[in-house]
Design a protein around this nucleic acid. Structure first.
Lengths: 68, 68
DNA sequence: CACTTTTATACCCCAAAGGGTATAAAATGA
DNA sequence: TCATTTTATACCCTTTGGGGTATAAAAGTG
């Protein structure tokens, strides 16, 4: 199933022992974006989110009932 | 697994026999947004996407390896 | 075929996303 | 506890997402 995006990202980042500035730089997004993302801001841009997720080998997708 | 967002949405809409204006109104988003979304625009806002997906009982989530 | 409906493209406009940065607050650890 | 690192808040600024709408192009339908 899918979990909270912010939780997922924060967890993955910690797992890789990266700071927010680290993650921002590696993902090629702004530091502010990483913070807002981890704080659960809903109105983020999907392409930016995917840039971050790409670092973890994941991607944003539609989770349907059949998927489970 | 996850499929293309635009394909998923367009498919679901057709399935429900809705026009783009219909979907836009029901989801509470603009018509332009629905169109850009179905045309695969990457830089859409996540909250708006979820507004549309909510109509289908789905939601945008992170698909991880374990999910499959 | 023409007629109707649906979808795509194009324009203006405003609110807000997000980058940068500076400062404050928390967390971590010696 | 104090010092250092990490994270959060706040501000300015530029860019752009997205709403509305008008027009053009496609796709259906008789």
């Amino acid at each position: 199933m899918s979990i909270s995006l912010s939780v997922f990202i924060k967890g993955k980042r910690k797992q890789l022992k990266l700071t927010q500035p680290d993650l921002a730089e590696r993902a090629g997004v702004g530091l502010r974006f990483v913070r807002e993302l981890e704080q659960g801001k809903e109105s983020v841009r999907m392409d930016k989110v995917n840039q971050v997720l790409a670092l973890f080998g994941s991607e944003l997708g539609v989770v349907t009932k059949q998927d489970v």
